[in-house]
């Protein structure tokens, strides 16, 4: 199941984006990015296989 819940707010001159995923063991993980600017370590490589696969996803910008 995938859920998207997006909202946006501005802090300190930047925009904080928040994407929340529920893992299959019930725990959540939240990815924070700012203005979409990130520095991926694995650029150009295929998608990883997570230990706990996401079962629900919620995207928010706060």
């Amino acid at each position: 199941m995938t859920q998207h819940d997006t909202k946006q707010a501005h802090h300190d001159g930047t925009t904080m984006h928040r994407r929340r995923i529920t893992l299959n063991d019930g725990r959540y993980i939240i990815f924070y990015t700012f203005d979409g600017a990130t520095a991926p370590l694995n650029t150009g490589e295929s998608a990883p296989q997570p230990e706990a696969k996401p079962v629900a996803e919620e995207e928010r910008r706060v």
Partner: peptide, 11 residues
């Protein structure tokens, strides 16, 4: 499971 982030929080 992902590398594209600035900061990550998890349980």
């Amino acid at each position: 499971p992902e590398s594209s982030y600035d900061i990550v929080v998890f349980e």
